[in-house]
Amino acid sequence: MKKQLVAVLAISLLATGSAFANKKATDTTPEEDLKVYRDYFMKKFPGVPLNEFQNGVYAIDKVSRDSWEAIEEFPPYEPMIEEGEEMWNKPFANGKTYSSCFPDGPAQRKNYPRWDAKRKMVVTLPMMVNECREKNGEKPLKWAKGPITRILSYMAYESRGQKTHVVIPKGDADALAAYNDGKSFYFARRGQLNFSCASCHVESAGQHIRTDILSPALGQTTGWPVYRSKWGELGTLHRRFKGCNKQVRAKPFKPQHRQYRNLEYFLTHMSNGIEYNGPSARK
């Protein structure tokens, strides 16, 4: 089996240069990309309205959608939203609350991820939550699961209906570089199986992988945190990134690593115009 895998890999690596040609990440602008991706998915899944892509695979497969709608009647994540609300309102040891860091309230999804020109890096909502905690003398929460998903659930729930609006600031070469870095990560083949994120979620979106159907990349960032039946709990977007990397047998990065933040920046930009609908449930 190992020998077969090695043979397949060697062949596919050799093929990478020819049969699967890519442009360079810098060859296209974010605006051009947005149009290309949208056109591609609209053509691949005709009749699916843009905003429907927020529902992932349930936008393109009726059978999966029926069972998902049944799950959504009694959402498994509902108690976690309430726990998140309690966290939001409970004062830290210094008497302040999360609202001291987010004066506009918990509906913050539309503001993240974003480019922080001062720090010259992409900042994400989970990062801001933990920075808020540290600023107020609290320990940061673990990134992938557990309490962080509660507070993020509440914030996502309060943000439902906001439209994705990721901006790559014009004339900021560093922001563009971060976007292109995320784009490269998305289209680069990696791991022993030599798959890119796009191999599954762009090129093969809608096709079966064993009993599952591969979800389209468009809209993939709107519903986080997600309650996955496989996990039996809520998890963050970067937890899913890790899982995907492991599945193609690449060594994953840590949640909130620069690579994953840039990837989130690129992938969320792809969904500009689609409404946030987290938290959500997935298989």
Partner: peptide, 22 residues
Amino acid sequence: FQGEMGYKQAISQRGVGNPDYL
């Protein structure tokens, strides 16, 4: 072998953008 292939793969994929099928 895995280390060598991982390196070659990463170098060959550095900076890639949109695939032609798009």
